Computed example of a mutant assay.
Amino acid sequence: MLSVNDFSKAIRATLILWLITAIIYPLFILIFGQIFLPYQANGSLIKDNQNNIIGSSLIGQSFQSDRYFWSRPSVINYSTGEDGGETGVSGASNLAPSNPDLVKNIEAEITKLKQVGITPTADLVYTSGSGLDPHISIQSAQNQIERIAIARNLDPNQLRELIKSHTEGRFLGIFGEPRINTLKLNIELDEFSKEIGY
């Protein structure tokens, strides 16, 4: 049977743990992030020259124009609703490999890519688990060079150099594959086109 002393200890322990986990620790993380990692702590936001937010390097965007590198498909349209607003959702289709709808979606993506002269790759055909993936593989970017070079009247070698300069290595040198952030690459592509007058 609990004594008054035991009951008092339990209440004090609960209050102390609540103070540590609900106030002290979150406050420490907030201050640490703002001082030492402000870019990451505030959402890794990418801004233009007028300080307007273009997007986040952590969340992909849909690109449909021939003038841009296309991202991988997203079941949730990168958390953008039909009205263009942010929905804040993340997710995949959850369709099983045996589901005819999944096969239909994949075939539609392959057809779309082939119609514009892009050799399909896995990440340009399959959606990601989160629907927010901002990266494509190096091969996927290289397969789009010819289309963009024609649309922007650029030398394909200039695009290859852009891809090379925006290639991110494996995490900690061992995890994942080299990849390219599509949003960052397309922003740089626009800047490069402006510099040379296209």
Rank of each mutant, 00 (worst) to 15 (best):
A141N: 08
G85V: 14
E109Y: 05
A151G: 06
T80E: 11
T14L: 14
S130D: 05
P100M: 07
K112I: 08
E177C: 12
N153M: 13
Y126E: 03
E146P: 11
N49K: 14
A92I: 01
S130H: 07
I46G: 07
L45F: 01
S98R: 02
Q158K: 15
N51V: 05
S98I: 10
L45C: 10
P73A: 10
Y68L: 03
N49Y: 12
G43R: 14
I174C: 00
L2Y: 06
I148L: 12
G85Q: 15
K164R: 15
G55K: 02
I59W: 00
S93W: 09
L17N: 11
S56T: 04
A13W: 14
Q61G: 07
S98D: 13
N186D: 02
H166P: 10
L2A: 12
L162S: 02
D66L: 00
G60M: 07
Q139F: 10
G173W: 03
V89M: 14
N49M: 13
L189A: 10
A92F: 08
E191Y: 11
W70H: 03
D155A: 02
L2K: 14
I59L: 14
L102C: 07
L159G: 04
T182H: 05
R67C: 13
I106T: 11
L159K: 04
F32P: 05
L95Y: 02
S90A: 15
E161K: 12
T182S: 11
N5Y: 14
W70P: 07
S79Q: 14
S3L: 01
F192R: 08
I29A: 00
I23P: 01
S3N: 04
R147N: 11
G85F: 13
A151R: 02
Y39I: 15
S65M: 12
N186W: 09
A141V: 08
K9H: 10
H166N: 10
I150F: 04
Q64L: 13
V89Y: 13
N51W: 06
E107V: 02
N77G: 10
F63D: 03
I138D: 01
E146H: 15
L102E: 05
D133M: 08
R72P: 00
K104W: 14
G117D: 06
S8A: 13
A151P: 00
I31T: 09
W70G: 02
A141I: 03
A149C: 09
L27C: 12
D123Y: 00
G129S: 05
I196V: 00
Q34N: 08
H166W: 10
K114N: 05
K112L: 03
S193W: 01
I11E: 00
V75C: 08
R12P: 08
S8D: 13
W70M: 03
N94C: 13
A13K: 09
L189K: 05
I59Q: 07
S93D: 12
S65V: 01
S8P: 01
D6F: 10
K184Q: 07
I136T: 03
A10W: 13
I148F: 06
R160A: 11
K9Q: 04
G60Y: 09
A10Y: 15
D83G: 04
P100G: 06
I163P: 00
K164Y: 06
I106W: 12
R179H: 00
D190H: 04
R147S: 04
W18E: 11
L102I: 11
L162A: 02
G55H: 06
G173C: 07
E146S: 15
I20F: 07
